[in-house]
Design a protein around this nucleic acid. Structure first.
Lengths: 249, 249
DNA sequence: GAGTGGTCTAGACCACACT
DNA sequence: GTGTGGTCTAGACCACTCC
């Protein structure tokens, strides 16, 4: 049960009730008590369970919704967010075609998928020991049969046992949906570092461009519950006919 | 006075009370009734003024705060957001040095500031007629005395009467603060389109780089109240020692 | 102590989806 | 109709800031 605010007042870090509820609910999500796509209990039920008013539960859920951990649907309930039903198919991919009418025909090709010791920089980014294994995936995304994105993806091997090139190749749907349904690893948020670089010979070959072509370099670190980093993804984007869109506020 | 929800129920678009309050408050901000940096009336006062409960005013202010139009400070009041007191000095500039310890020494150099007919693409982006005038500013940002950013900035001349290179050069502080205090144009949000390009001769000269160096091209369109576009900014960033950071969720 | 925003409650009623 | 989230209210009390 949550501590009442007054009882917690003598401790240095005062935490409102709804924050405590939010933490408890996040743990339920993390434990898998409520699974992606399913409805969580109604606000009234949760109010009873946590012995607080519905308004307090409501505020906790509000925050979970703005964090994109759950989705509210009026009249139906509140549902655990999932990468399964993204209308864009790629929730985290901010590439947009210059020609807005471009058909959604996309294709993937997996070049490589292997297990190896995590290099030092990858180990650091994923909070692994250098003795830990990592899975490295290399793939190309094609839009309208033209290669546009080359990704190098690093995952902690311990979390993705049994992930193979075959499994990746045969899966229909976004990669993050596979991670979520097969490996119970849900990507919550990510940070990206973006630069402009010149294509090296390898990238140029795979993206079918002259070496030296300017490419967008996007280094993404994705996190799951509890701010745990679980993916390092280094992408090279050909921005000749696409751009990376961003909103500032 | 806001229409009560029930009274508005017959019209097709139902709008909650707090949304109507939010709209009224946005208009007060736009009109300049409450000016940047100043405190707006307390929640209790606003509740009386709008004849609603404090909770409803509160929810309206909550949204204005998440939109970054106002800032709440417990115990003190709610204040109109301003570009004057950004700790980063550049609220919309997402460039970060690789070396996190880099000193904050920045310098600006204005290359050009002139008034001219808006080219077709600029006119379209700023919703101007092609007969309208625009102000074009070109400047370079230096970090540690090295040129890193080359900006081409387009503004509707009608909104920025009297803006000159001298005024720009003599002003201390962020450009958006100048716009806000001198021209009463407040930038609320912006959209960016990002690509990788090769430096042309001009850019290479100004950024002191070899022509052909990959640069980040950042096209920003900024909006003021009412989603009115008021700035088109085309930036070229040297990302050799800096990166563009972004958060996804 | 007075004034501000922040939290929490309890209850009423509305809008929406399903059946 | 029943159950869900969404809105609105009124009032109590807490935390923070300033005088």
């Amino acid at each position: 049960m949550p501590t009442t605010p007054t009882a917690a007042a003598d401790s240095p870090a005062f935490s409102p009730l709804y924050q405590q509820i939010k933490t408890l609910m996040t743990q339920s999500l993390q434990r898998g008590e409520w699974r992606p796509g399913e409805a969580i209990p109604s606000e009234a039920e949760l109010a009873v369970r946590f012995k607080v008013s519905q308004g307090t539960v409501r505020k906790a859920i509000d925050e979970l919704a703005t964090d994109n951990l759950v989705v509210r649907r009026q009249g139906k309930g509140t549902f655990v967010a999932t990468h399964a039903e993204e209308r864009t198919q790629f929730r985290f991919l901010r590439l947009t075609p210059d020609d807005a009418a471009e058909t959604g025909s996309t294709r993937r090709r997996f070049i490589d998928c292997r297990r190896q010791r995590a290099p030092a920089d990858v180990a650091r980014a994923l909070a692994l020991r250098t003795s830990d294994n990592a899975i490295r995936i290399r793939r190309v995304l094609y839009f309208r049969d033209l290669p546009v994105v080359l990704d190098d993806i690093w995952l902690p091997a311990a979390l993705f046992k049994g992930l193979t090139a075959e499994r990746l190749g045969s899966y229909r749907g976004p990669m993050y949906r596979l991670f979520e349904s097969e490996f119970h690893v849900r990507m919550i948020r990510a940070e990206e570092k973006i630069r402009a670089v010149a294509a090296d010979d390898t990238a140029a070959g795979l993206l079918e461009l002259p070496p030296g072509t300017p490419l967008l370099s996007v280094e993404r670190r994705s996190y799951t519950y509890g701010d745990r980093p679980v993916e390092l993804r280094r992408g090279l984007y050909n921005t000749a006919a696409h751009y990376y869109r961003n909103e500032l506020s």
